[in-house]
Amino acid sequence: MNKLLNYIIVILLYTFTSISAHAVGTESVKSSNPISGDATAIEEGKTLYRANCAYCHGLRANGKGRGLPKSANLRKFKRGYTAFVSAVVNGYKRMPAWGGMGPLEYEQINAIGAYLETMAKEGANWEDEE
């Protein structure tokens, strides 16, 4: 039931972000994140990222933390924003739902995404396909 609810929320979010897909984050990466580029959100996202994600993905998001070996390099993330939210909520491959760290509000996930976009490397993509 919990998973079903998560899927519904992700679908709703996808609808929302699709409508808001005009948002473009940094100069180097396009994003469907509705708060992409928001300075306040980026600052909040930095704190949230370090508290919830950095243990596995590393301080600089290179995938070189301690928790889960072979964690993804999030600076090269290219599967689009909805896939990012889905991975956080439902887990992805060896990463459990919420990274095993407990639920976050959707605004908080957006903020983490906004922060990660600022560290994106060439080839990264945070924009959903139309």
Partner: peptide
């Protein structure tokens, strides 16, 4: 390691590390 201390956050009564790092 690159290392930084952060405010401790609590979820389900579990305190997180209050730190972030990267090896290399």
């Amino acid at each position: 390691m690159a290392y930084t201390l952060e405010k401790v956050q609590v979820t389900s009564n579990v305190r997180n590390l209050g730190a972030a790092f990267e090896i290399g």
